[in-house]
Design a protein around this nucleic acid. Structure first.
Ligand SMILES: [Mn+2]
Ligand SMILES: [Mn+2]
Ligand SMILES: [Zn+2]
Ligand SMILES: [Zn+2]
Lengths: 141, 141
DNA sequence: GTTAAAAATGCAATAAAATGGCAAAAAGGA
DNA sequence: TCCTTTTTGCCATTTTATTGCATTTTTAAC
């Protein structure tokens, strides 16, 4: 997705198109797996000249999440992980219990199970826990 | 599950049966939804005479998790949530985006989707995000 | 029941991840 | 360019979790 596209999505969501927001969204859109705020910061530190403050990253991600441009995933780790909301929707994720890598899977999300009365579902998430190829090839279990 | 049963499970896992471990496991087994370490502490503070230190709770939960007696769930919230590993297995969970309540659902976990080569799955988790009945009945969306 | 070794706990310090307040800076429209 | 509003940077603080170490508890052997 091109920068003008991303800018447009931010503007359409009713916010100002700032360097930080654009860079964060760009970063998440370019990544092929969900990132933590700190990972976003590292990426920007490596590939950008102006590096936003850590707090700014948090706020940019928050804003993007609240306005539906990115999504926060359920994780077993301590840090939150985010991915862009794009065409490709409703896919499962793999989480390695050793290296904490979180990877998108081709598998679509299963159908909505029945809920207790009064409950309203908005999103379904399927998380597969296990060992990634690298960690399995490596040493300890 | 009775206390002797729980003690036995701890001993069978190769650990010492301590007041703290037993109380924590008891607490999680009695709760009808997954709890955070702090919630466990609150429960024990209310229902127990000797209240273990917060760090002891963390260590007891860790030990129980490592030895397969409890399980840490994937969450969107900041605090981890744990539930006992019992007969009833492989069920989905509902997470309210407003009150952060996490509730067990009757729905079984869906079948394992295909994984990339070399990856090994160990557990599947299905998380339904939305609004619980109480929060939906309440005020703001 | 005593005793000794090993394991677990309490307490204080520290770390990791995230949030809040506020003045300065940037964005966007007039 | 100027003005208003939004966003940012910095610092302090909060929340959640972890580490180090002396003390206590557990358990098995006697
Ligand atoms: Mn994904
Ligand atoms: Mn459950
Ligand atoms: Zn891995
Ligand atoms: Zn709720």
């Amino acid at each position: 997705m091109t920068d003008p596209d991303l800018s447009r999505r931010i503007r359409d969501a009713g916010g100002r198109v700032t360097t930080a927001r654009l860079a964060v969204l760009r970063c998440l859109a370019d990544a092929d797996e969900p990132l933590t705020p700190d990972e976003v910061l590292e990426h920007l530190a490596r590939n950008s000249d102006h590096v936003p403050d850590r707090v700014t990253i948090y706020r940019a991600i928050d804003w993007l999440a609240v306005h539906g441009l990115v999504r926060r995933l359920a994780t077993v780790g301590r840090a939150a992980r985010y991915e862009p909301v794009e065409d490709r929707e409703a896919h499962a994720h793999f989480q390695c219990r050793r290296c904490a890598q979180t990877r998108c899977l081709p598998a679509p999300t299963p159908p909505l199970p029945p809920l207790p009365p009064g409950y309203a579902a908005e999103r379904i998430e399927l998380v597969i826990h296990g060992l990634c190829a690298a960690c399995r090839a490596g040493d300890t279990p």
